[in-house]
């Protein structure tokens, strides 16, 4: 895994790019949680998910037929990441190097 971190802000974008085709769970600010395969991400951290499954389907029945979605970055509260695909040492080094100064 080779990162090409640029200073200021694109670090987390790079992290998401390395996680494409991995399963993630996106929790939105309206408490909706969506698990799916991360297909793409952009600089605003907008996210495209495939093969999605809503955590609490009973509460969101309208989501049952939805198979993929685009999530605007600003409505995201958390993204749960697959920890086995996150190199924490690399992250810390990159953050120290490229951290906002």
């Amino acid at each position: 895994m080779r990162h090409n971190f640029c200073p200021l802000g694109s670090l987390i974008f790079s992290v998401f790019k390395t996680l494409t085709d991995q399963q993630v769970t996106v929790e939105l600010k309206n408490d909706l949680s969506i698990t799916g395969v991360l297909k793409s991400v952009d600089q605003f951290l907008n996210i495209r998910l495939d093969s999605i499954k809503v955590l609490d389907e009973a509460r969101h029945p309208h989501m049952m037929a939805v198979k993929n979605c685009f999530i605007r970055g600003s409505v995201v509260r958390y993204v749960q990441l697959p920890s086995e695909h996150v190199d924490t040492q690399l992250l810390e080094d990159a953050t120290r190097r490229g951290a906002p100064t």
Partner: peptide, 22 residues
């Protein structure tokens, strides 16, 4: 915001205060 608190190990942050924690 929203009366939430987290504790965790900090691995990355950026100028927006986006965080990655484990």
């Amino acid at each position: 915001r929203g009366d939430r608190e987290l504790t965790g190990i900090l691995h990355a942050y950026d100028g927006h205060m986006n965080l990655i924690m484990s």
